[in-house]
Amino acid sequence: MTSRVLLNPAAFQLVIKRLAHQLIEVHDDFSNSVLIGLQPRGIYAARRLHKELTQLIQTPAIALGELDCTFYRDDFRKKTLHPNRTILDFTIEDKNVILIDDVLFTGRTIRSGLDALMDYGRPRDIELLVLIDRRLSRHVPIQAKYAGLTIDSIDSQVVKVEWQETDNCDGVTLLSN
């Protein structure tokens, strides 16, 4: 097993800052925009971006939600699934939704996330933000509008994203056999 660091803590922080600025360019004061992190790992990216955005634009409250798409997945019985909590304390009807996940790989999670989201209402539009985009490995035609880092990787490799909140250190590593 070999590992290669893709983002060290300093670079990680830079990427988060850049993504936050890109979001501000499009969403201005976030009055009609909501951030939704995908369970289980996308919620940390969403929370971090929310914190960063709140500091940057000094807006009282940017809506932040967490969405679980376990019951919408197409791969149950192929692996054991762990349902998590969905927390959406606001309506997404006619909102600009920014769907956030840590790694975009086959696109299947996002596909199920979109289905799950639609059951909560009809947003005005949905954008996808990911920290790491593993391009060239998609199973479904889904692309991110904002990507922290785009990488080329093969199926057998694993992208490991670590967060200060859960792993005591920010960082992204590419693991290869």
Partner: peptide
């Protein structure tokens, strides 16, 4: 624990999942 997740589903406007 799984029941709690489904209770959330049942309290939504669309009380159905395609699992």
């Amino acid at each position: 624990n799984t029941t709690s997740q489904f209770k959330d589903v049942l309290n939504r406007p669309i009380k159905k999942v395609p699992s």
